[in-house]
Design a protein around this nucleic acid. Structure first.
Lengths: 196, 196
DNA sequence: AAGATAAGTGAGCGATTGCTCATTTTAAAA
DNA sequence: TTTTAAAATGAGCAATCGCTCACTTATCTT
């Protein structure tokens, strides 16, 4: 027997993330990836069934990493405001530290691969958020609402800010820069809207 | 001389939008497009310099249509709350009526083509929003904030809701359905957070 | 040392990619 | 009617695509 070379599989994963993030999902290809990772195209098919399997598998792994990072020091029994703030800080820190992963994930989430990848992620999310949101409702901190509405109000603004920052986009004349101060102000705004 | 056949160029545009929306940007190709639109591949290059020019041109056109639709019956002199509500209703109606366009636009906005397309769109947006937001600030309805923060809080939640609806995604067990009632509730939540 | 088994490879398959060019078609201008 | 010039075409180019296979290499068990 011969054991799998963990350096190889890791090189494949990291190169795939970097390529998609930098050149775009539409320019991602197996032959390119093999060359970039320094392996044979055939080697990739030892680890992944096909191109779709590779992309969805990696995006699920990254999604789980992101979810776990977001939930660091988080406890479902926290007050609503404190709990959401912990998640915002964690999520922002992860996106800044791993902006290739974050970009990769965001591209997959807006592609035809989204269905397969989001199954696992949303299940993970729901398991983690269910109790916390329910507690906040029963404590009378927030109104009951569909989880999709909650996500849209509580997280979409943060994701948007991170995107503006990471992609160097700008609506004003000067380039937008993320900062803890801006994040806190935006957070206060969102929490004020959500809480009774 | 021979005149350009407007049916042809329109067929090219509409098929491109449909193909990207349904099969994904990563599966979009010129030869496919030509076959779907019933024209020769070479014909496409009469109207567009290359694949990138085609995608960015169409996305800019659709973006401008979307912006104009969003600003229907909108007046920069409106009160903050009324003005934002008009835009939410318009934007949601457009996305439901033209969900292929909306999906196409969203995919381009999350791809490597985003830089080229967003230049024009954000300029249009800034021209339209500048006065309105400024008025709201001087009237003391909202605090001053970077345009990116404003956009993230005021619009990102709506875009997220529309995506949940159009793409049939779901966080809860049952499928999420958009409705005027849910939109209004979400809107109230957002406005409460933004206004003093 | 020999045998077994899975990891890993490089060449290359058929299909498809973005794009071009020699040619034909069309309709206005002369 | 003839000329003219742009619109439109279909065949097909070089390059690349996703993927496979016959084969070599490494490391375990016997």
């Amino acid at each position: 027997m011969r054991y799998r070379d963990e350096n190889k599989i890791q090189a494949i994963r990291e190169c795939a993330i970097e390529m998609v993030a930098k050149d775009g999902l539409e320019n991602f290809g197996i032959n390119r990836l093999a060359k970039a990772a320094g392996v044979s195209p055939a080697t990739i098919y030892i680890y992944y069934k096909d191109k779709e399997d590779l992309l969805t598998s990696i995006s699920i792994e990254e999604g789980i990493k992101m979810t776990q990072a977001t939930l660091k020091d988080f406890d479902p029994k926290m007050s609503f405001k404190e709990g959401l703030w912990v998640q915002w800080k964690n999520r922002a820190a992860f996106a800044l530290d791993n902006h290739l992963s974050a970009n990769f994930f965001e591209q997959l989430r807006n592609s035809t691969y989204k269905d397969k990848m989001m199954e696992t992620i949303t299940h993970e999310f729901r398991r983690a958020m269910g109790d916390y949101v329910h507690n906040a409702v029963t404590r009378g901190e927030i109104d009951e609402m569909p989880l999709e509405v909650y996500w849209s109000v509580a997280f979409a603004p943060l994701y948007s800010l991170i995107k503006f920052h990471n992609e160097g986009q700008s609506l004003g004349g000067r380039k937008f820069k993320f900062s803890e101060k801006i994040m806190k102000e935006t957070f206060d705004c969102v929490v004020k809207g959500l809480m009774k």
